[in-house]
Simulated assay, not measured.
Amino acid sequence: MKFYEVLVGGDEGPQRRLRVASPTDVQAADAAATLMRTHEAILSIRQSPDDGLQRADAPPPRTQAEEASEATPGMAAKT
């Protein structure tokens, strides 16, 4: 798991930095989306070095198998 810093905000509004744990930068955007407010957009995503003290603002994003298991219980385990 890697740590990412996601900068969110609006064109004219304030910007916020969110820290998330994720295997990829694309999934980091998914994790940050759970913390975003109305009219905020992702402005940048960059990987942060893991110094052993990193804390995430959001849980890691769910995998596709975890998301599919709600719709089709048991199918995710068969793949």
Rank of each mutant, 00 (worst) to 15 (best):
D57W: 01
M1Q: 09
K2Q: 06
G13K: 05
P60S: 03
R37L: 08
P23M: 06
S48A: 13
A41K: 08
P14G: 07
D57K: 01
A58P: 09
L53C: 05
R55G: 00
A71Q: 07
D51Y: 05
D11S: 14
D25I: 03
G74V: 11
E66V: 08
L43Q: 13
M1T: 12
S22G: 02
T79A: 04
E5M: 15
T63S: 15
V6N: 04
A56Q: 09
P14K: 05
G13Y: 02
E12Q: 07
A32M: 01
A71N: 05
M36V: 04
T79G: 03
A33C: 07
F3I: 12
D30S: 00
V20Y: 09
E12D: 12
Q64R: 15
M75E: 10
A77T: 09
R16S: 07
A68V: 08
V20P: 07
G74L: 11
T24E: 14
R37A: 08
A65Y: 14
D50M: 01
L35A: 06
M1C: 08
L18K: 06
D51E: 06
Y4T: 07
Q54F: 03
A41Y: 05
S44Y: 04
A21P: 06
I45G: 09
G13R: 07
E40P: 00
K2C: 03
A33D: 12
V20A: 10
A65N: 15
T79N: 03
R19S: 09
L7C: 10
E70H: 15
A76G: 08
R46A: 04
I45K: 12
M1I: 06
A41R: 09
Y4A: 06
R19Q: 13
A71S: 10
D11N: 13
G13Q: 08
R17L: 00
A77Q: 11
Q47S: 12
A33K: 11
M1Y: 09
D50F: 03
A65G: 13
I45W: 11
R16P: 03
G52D: 09
A21I: 08
L53N: 11
A29V: 11
G9V: 02
A76I: 08
L35N: 00
A33P: 04
L7S: 12
D50P: 00
F3P: 12
D11E: 13
D30C: 00
Q47C: 11
D50C: 02
D11A: 14
R55M: 03
I42S: 15
G52P: 08
R17K: 02
A68T: 06
V8K: 01
Q15H: 06
E66T: 09
Q64E: 15
A41W: 04
T38N: 12
A33H: 11
T24L: 11
M75P: 00
Q15R: 07
R46M: 03
A29C: 13
A77P: 01
G9I: 02
E67I: 14
